[in-house]
Nucleic acid binder design. Structure first.
Lengths: 332, 332
DNA sequence: AATGGCCATGTAAACGCTATCACCTGTCCT
DNA sequence: AGGACAGGTGATAGCGTTTACATGGCCATT
């Protein structure tokens, strides 16, 4: 089951078998045929660990995401994987579920695997970990977190602009009492996701917002919406941190007999496929996951190859998408 | 960045460092402390490839799924991963997207990685591949495909019973013209998924069914439903191969102004979380993904350990779940 | 004081590959 | 005829670990 046995059977040296395996074209056709035959007869599968060890290089890129359950992350993963395959790379994925111990474990794992590049599409990242990654020398792309460094490239979405577009629109429809549904990963005094909402709200006279947070799932969205509805005055619009939670909110409203958008408007974020399929279809903001995926791959593969790609930081401007879940504030 | 450097720095041999890394308790506390210090100072991360090579064992289990986009697969993955972590194993996932070349590549990859166990949750599997896996000696669990062998365990869902329950119910509500929405992976003369539908239909006098197939996605469901609606007489009920496609179908009906369930009933399969959150909530059949995940892990981890678990084949009986997407046939 | 054991550690041989270098044939030149 | 050269192949030294096996203290036993 190893090179040597194949070599013996094909009556060549292990070096030659290795050449055949790696498509080095120097092997004579007849020899190659003998080797291939031996490989098949023995059902030989090269040991990837040995290969990586000996070769020193990895042809694998790692990707760490916060919550694969949210199609947003999967969409990115999918385009990264497909780009990577084209370039002859594999990608191994790790899901942290927003747990920071899991993040640490995943990063260590990826370093241990000596991946050729690492994409971290996660919402939180401690400085110590960033340090660890910097020192590892592995090319890294962060999405939405951290700052550019030596071997670290950043891709971020102008979340603030997206929120502004949503709030502008809702304000223009007469909404004055807003609710914001976020997820737990964004708790804390001043959060990347909540702050823009608060700031946008502050720009308009008479505009108010209350926030609630829960898990980044359908159920979480539902629960957060319920919390909003149960505490204080009913908002006329609920702004959600992403589409999944918005779909959860939609259900809570429906079951309470609150009509969307007649009684309450709801907005999502990301423009995940599901946002078109839920009822009513979500007004949301489009984040181009495919672009993000391509950017990640280009960066990682270019770095592991020759020169650095464009810049160390790129920001994406999201686009407003109007659908059926929003309408004029009631009584207007 | 390797064992030797750490050893040098801690003034011990590489063997001792290795012992520290592997928690062998024979190391004197003071020595251990020195080594740990050196490891941290050097930010040393053991090379997993070298480890696997030298150790011969892998502590990684592989999982291959057809379509990670469908939450059904993700749910299984998630419980497998969590069980595996508890046992100190990693899991690497591969997504085939229903492409058989990709399946072949993924299997080869897993064998190359010398995984400690492999879960194949895919819809098609050529005999040659099964052969390859058998020979590899890796413990394998198949979901819904193949037959038990030497090192192969099977888990299957009694799909037929699930379908029977759905069709019985629809028939009792007066439905006589059915539509079936399937996905491409199940094309071909007699299919595992279509056959039970045809058989069930054949049992009832006056019951008819037309089928359509498309991709296993929200869009696919929508398109397949459209095909059903556009060709021939409008069915009074649409049975879908899974929840995702059913949600797609729901949208198509909604946009055509066809009311569910007043005009047309719709059923799903799997009882994915989304089936509660779509509108109307889907009548479906529950497949316990967590049970499947546990079964997979138990089997794989037990095998790689000591004795074999229970049997070589286990079948799961799905449960009918009544919600709002089904009702009496129109005019009855 | 010599013997035996047991702990803690060191030495070195795998593990299965890749990659460098050396070697051997022939060809083709001069 | 004698080299230079190139294409094809073999030998072998790593790659970074783990894991026997060997070694050396040190204490308890006789």
């Amino acid at each position: 089951m190893n090179l040597e046995q194949v070599a013996r059977r094909a009556k060549v040296s292990t070096a030659t078998v290795s050449r055949v395996l790696n498509n080095a074209s120097v092997v004579k056709t007849s020899t190659r045929a003998r080797v291939v035959k031996a490989i098949e007869e023995l059902k030989y599968h090269p040991n990837l660990h040995a290969r990586n060890l000996a070769g020193g290089k990895s042809r694998t890129i790692g990707m760490i995401v916060s919550n694969m359950e949210n199609p947003f992350f999967f969409d990115i993963y999918k385009t990264v994987e497909s780009d990577a395959h084209v370039a002859g790379f594999e990608v191994v994925m790790a899901n942290t579920d927003y747990r920071s111990e899991q993040l640490v474990a995943s990063i260590r794992l990826m370093i241990g695997r000596r991946v050729a590049g690492l994409a971290a599409v996660v919402s939180e990242m401690e400085p110590a970990l960033i340090e660890e990654l910097t020192d590892s020398g592995i090319p890294v792309v962060f999405y939405d977190v951290g700052t550019p460094r030596q071997n670290i490239t950043n891709i971020r979405v102008d979340y603030r602009r997206g929120i502004d577009k949503i709030i502008d629109y809702l304000y223009s429809l007469g909404h004055r009492k807003l609710g914001f549904v976020g997820h737990h990963a964004m708790l804390g005094p001043i959060n990347e996701r909540v702050k823009p909402v608060l700031d946008a709200v502050a720009r308009y006279p008479g505009l108010e917002v209350r926030t609630a947070a829960d898990a980044d799932t359908l159920d979480g969205g539902r629960l957060a919406a319920r919390a909003l509805l149960l505490s204080g005055e009913q908002p006329t619009a609920i702004v959600c941190v992403n589409d999944i939670m918005a779909v959860g909110a939609l259900r809570e409203l429906r079951e309470r007999g609150i009509r969307v958008p007649q009684d309450v408007s709801v907005t999502g974020f990301d423009n995940v496929k599901l946002s078109e399929f839920c009822y009513p279809a979500l007004t949301t903001v489009h984040i181009p996951r495919d672009t993000i995926g391509h950017l990640i791959c280009d960066t990682l593969l270019a770095k592991s190859g020759k020169t650095a790609v464009a810049d160390h930081e790129m920001v994406i401007d999201p686009e407003f998408v109007l659908r059926d879940s929003t309408g004029p504030a009631p009584g207007r």
